[in-house]
Design a protein around this nucleic acid. Structure first.
Lengths: 165, 165
DNA sequence: ATCAATGCAAATAATTTGCAAAAAG
DNA sequence: CTTTTTGCAAATTATTTGCATTGAT
């Protein structure tokens, strides 16, 4: 599960805390470890539950207080999907420009990168007088294979479901 | 303010209601008129306030109950921006493929369309085995003009602010 | 020692819902 | 008339906050 950048991400967070003169507590460590032991998208409530498995002393408040530190340091990104609550994506640390395809058939979320899209965006924004800082692209789509064969065997390769657990 | 498609949109909603054997009430009419008298993004709470100006009898509950009918019939679209609450965009009725640039300097939201981006997406998804249904592209960016001249005079042309009112 | 960070429980705020009364078809 | 829709107020749910205490440095 841990991709190359994961350990770097953990170190980066520790550096971030120290740089801001913030303290490295066991609770923050547990949350950090939890975040970077999955490639799945998750909610604050899930993160709380998972972090508690590592360290029973992690509280709801601490999770909610740590999340902004993680997003603020660029290691985690909010994903406004459904909307009933916020999802977080731990894969931005590795691939800050990735995009999402939400399958309307199986509700899974797939990630992909496209240098071509990035370039078109930059060029387009240039023309409009803007300099791209970040982008967020979500495509909802239907599964071709499912339509043809009645089955979709992509689920194995996914990096995260919309409504995990 | 009313673009060509606006009246068509209103008719479409009436048809939608009749098709579903739902009733056309004065409250629903007031909400519908309100939605299609602006090009701005808005929240449920704002819609309530504005609709009440037309018809004092519109209640919070009715607004929240009507909103899904409007999104369900494709006339309005949820915009997951900030996240503290849901924003709605009335411009999808006219331009279902438009994208957003969120200016980090002035917090305004600009809309633009790009056939090129649409095509790249379709092609890319094809390769991945998906058929695009909808897409959602948000770019956060800095204003070139502001950086150079210290002023941005784009605000006049905008179609909606992030935090209106 | 110092001062940031924690857990807890109470507070917010957006959205949803139950229900009896009103009104559309 | 029948069935949907409404307003109201109470309920839900994610997230935030105040405060006394704990713990990292």
């Amino acid at each position: 599960m841990a991709t190359p950048g994961r350990n770097a991400a953990k170190k980066k967070f520790v550096d971030f805390l120290q740089g801001q003169k913030l303290r490295i507590t066991p609770q923050r460590r547990a949350i950090l470890e939890t975040v970077f032991s999955t490639a799945q998208h998750f909610t604050a409530v899930q993160l709380l539950k998972w972090s508690r498995r590592r360290d029973k002393s992690v509280s709801r408040a601490t999770v909610y207080r740590t999340l902004p530190l993680l997003t603020g340091s660029g290691l985690l990104r909010e994903m406004d999907f459904g909307r009933d609550c916020v999802y977080y994506d731990p894969n931005y640390a590795d691939r800050p420009n990735h995009n999402h395809i939400i399958c309307l058939d199986c509700d899974m979320i797939f990630e992909f990168e496209s240098e071509q899209i990035n370039q078109v965006e930059v060029k387009l924004c240039q023309k409009l007088g803007f300099s791209v800082k970040t982008h967020r692209l979500q495509i909802t789509a239907h599964c071709d294979q499912l339509k043809k064969t009645g089955v979709c065997n992509r689920k194995k390769e996914t990096s995260g479901k919309l409504k995990p657990d």
